[in-house]
Amino acid sequence: MAGRIQSIERAAAILRLLAGGARGLSLAEISRTLELPKGTVLGILRTLQHVGFVEQDQPAGHYRLGGGVLRLGTRYLDGNELRTRALNWADSLAGRSGESVRIGTLHERHVLVVHHVFRPDDSRQTLEVGSLLPLHATALGKALLAFDPLALPDEPEPDAPGLPAYTARTLTSRPALLAELDTVRANGWAPELEELVEGEVGIAAPIRDRSGTTVGAIGLSGAVERLCDDRGLRMDQVSYVRDAARSISRELGAHPW
């Protein structure tokens, strides 16, 4: 059996590192983080630039992912059965709710956004397809965690720090998160109350396939002023999300519930 190719492993490590640096990283930062010689890193970066997978920002000299990676990712997402089956239902949910809609799947302890429908108005918005979101601080993430026990983070050591906080409302302790997931399972949908972004709330529900396995989640997000009333999250919007999740699940062969 042929062995692994070290240069490809290093190139993959650089691409993964750049994927987490929205503003780009310098040669020194990449070299230091991966503990590789600068000359080695520079040679790999120049090769990745040549094939379009990496771009260099001038004059700062920082490196970031190039358009070639996005095209590869888009081809993967286009072939994703979940996304294909969900396109029309996501558009419909955005139209009914008047809010932005995202579909996410579990990917390396994060939510991978595989489809994003803009809020149907004239506001300026950014496409989030391919983004990675925290599981514990988003409605999509909690919908995935609640119905997929393998997605739960391992039990931390007694002196380990809590989960990352993004706002004052983020659930940062494992017991608090587990209690929240119990409620999500009981209700069949997950809330997000200014836990990732202040002033923004969200609603999500699980998507199941023909075996009953949770394969993704669909959710909407928007300003707290639009999605909440005196009693909390608006239940008509919750109903829209759950209807969309059930419809997509039926498309995937799940039994009606």
Rank of each mutant, 00 (worst) to 15 (best):
R242V: 13
A245E: 06
M235V: 12
R226I: 02
L252K: 09
R234T: 01
M235E: 14
D230A: 15
R226P: 03
Q237T: 06
R250T: 09
H255S: 11
A254L: 11
V238Y: 03
G232I: 05
R226N: 06
A244D: 08
R226L: 07
D236C: 00
G253H: 11
R250I: 09
A244K: 05
M235Q: 15
D229F: 02
L233I: 15
D230G: 15
L233C: 09
S239H: 09
E251S: 13
V241F: 00
E251W: 07
A254F: 07
S249Q: 09
V241L: 01
S247G: 12
H255C: 07
D229I: 00
R234F: 00
L252Y: 08
L227Y: 02
A244I: 07
D243E: 15
V238T: 09
Y240Q: 05
G232H: 08
R234D: 04
V241R: 00
R226A: 04
L233H: 04
R231E: 15
R250G: 08
S249G: 14
R226Y: 06
D243R: 14
I248H: 07
A254V: 11
D243F: 10
C228H: 00
Y240L: 03
V241T: 05
A254D: 09
D243N: 14
G253S: 11
S249I: 12
L227H: 00
V238K: 01
Y240D: 09
L233T: 05
R246V: 11
G253F: 09
V238R: 04
D236H: 04
A245W: 06
R231W: 13
Y240K: 03
M235H: 13
I248R: 05
L227W: 01
A244Q: 06
R242D: 08
I248P: 05
R246Q: 14
R231F: 12
R246N: 12
E251F: 08
V241I: 06
R234I: 02
R246A: 15
L233G: 03
R231M: 13
L252D: 10
